[in-house]
Simulated assay, not measured.
Amino acid sequence: MKRQKFWTLAALPLLAAGATLTMAPSASASATDAAACTHPAWSNKDAGSGYISGSSAPLRTGPNEGCPTTATIYGAKLYYHCYVVNSAGNTWTHARIDGTQINGWIYDGNLNDNGATKPC
C-alpha cells in the first residue's frame, strides 16, 4: 500500500515575522505550470480498477494539475496501470477508461480507493 505525504504550512513563521508574499503574474504561472507537466514512463503493472470519488474528474496528459486534460470522467470505470509521486509529493495513477483506448493520469485524491498500488 502506498503512502500519502502530508505537508505542514512552512510559511507561517514568515508571515508572523512580517514578511509579505506576492503573486506572480499569470504569464509566469502558465510557464511554471507547463514546466511542471512531465510525462514519466509508465507500464501496465497493476491489475486494479476503480471509480472517481466525486461526480467528475479530469484525466490529464501528465501527473500534475498544470497538465492539459485528455478527458473528463463522469462515473466510468478505470483500469489502473501504475502510480507516480509528482514534484509536489502527490500520487497520481496512470489509468485507462473502461471500454475505450483513452488513458492518462488522474490525481489519486479523485479516486474512490486511492488508485494504483504498483509504482511505475
Results as ranks from 00 to 15, higher is better:
residue 103 N to P: 00
residue 98 D to W: 06
residue 68 P to D: 13
residue 67 C to P: 08
residue 23 M to C: 07
residue 31 A to T: 14
residue 3 R to K: 07
residue 44 N to V: 11
residue 6 F to Q: 14
residue 56 S to H: 11
residue 116 A to S: 11
residue 8 T to I: 10
residue 106 I to Y: 01
residue 109 G to T: 03
residue 53 S to Y: 07
residue 39 H to I: 09
residue 13 P to S: 07
residue 32 T to W: 07
residue 95 A to Y: 03
residue 94 H to R: 08
residue 43 S to W: 04
residue 43 S to M: 03
residue 42 W to D: 05
residue 22 T to N: 10
residue 25 P to F: 08
residue 119 P to T: 02
residue 82 C to T: 02
residue 3 R to I: 06
residue 73 I to P: 04
residue 107 Y to H: 05
residue 45 K to F: 08
residue 110 N to S: 14
residue 47 A to I: 10
residue 92 W to Q: 01
residue 102 I to L: 12
residue 85 V to G: 02
residue 2 K to N: 13
residue 99 G to C: 04
residue 13 P to H: 06
residue 120 C to A: 06
residue 73 I to L: 14
residue 76 A to S: 15
residue 30 S to E: 15
residue 30 S to V: 14
residue 18 G to T: 12
residue 3 R to L: 04
residue 119 P to E: 02
residue 45 K to P: 00
residue 23 M to P: 01
residue 43 S to D: 07
residue 26 S to H: 07
residue 71 A to V: 13
residue 118 K to Q: 15
residue 40 P to L: 04
residue 103 N to D: 14
residue 25 P to D: 15
residue 38 T to I: 08
residue 109 G to M: 00
residue 106 I to D: 01
residue 83 Y to P: 02
residue 107 Y to M: 00
residue 30 S to Q: 15
residue 87 S to H: 12
residue 4 Q to K: 08
residue 8 T to W: 11
residue 7 W to T: 07
residue 72 T to L: 07
residue 14 L to Q: 07
residue 117 T to Q: 10
residue 5 K to W: 01
residue 25 P to V: 10
residue 90 N to I: 05
residue 78 L to G: 01
residue 61 T to M: 11
residue 31 A to P: 04
residue 65 E to Q: 13
residue 22 T to E: 14
residue 37 C to L: 07
residue 43 S to Q: 08
residue 98 D to A: 12
residue 78 L to D: 04
residue 13 P to T: 04
residue 50 G to D: 06
residue 70 T to K: 15
residue 73 I to R: 03
residue 81 H to C: 07
residue 12 L to C: 08
residue 4 Q to Y: 08
residue 115 G to R: 01
residue 91 T to D: 03
residue 80 Y to S: 01
residue 26 S to F: 07
residue 79 Y to E: 04
residue 106 I to S: 00
residue 59 L to I: 11
residue 113 D to L: 03
residue 108 D to R: 04
residue 54 G to W: 13
residue 61 T to C: 07
residue 113 D to G: 05
residue 57 A to Y: 10
residue 103 N to R: 10
residue 46 D to F: 11
residue 16 A to H: 03
residue 83 Y to E: 01
residue 105 W to E: 00
residue 8 T to Y: 12
residue 51 Y to D: 09
residue 91 T to R: 03
residue 100 T to L: 13
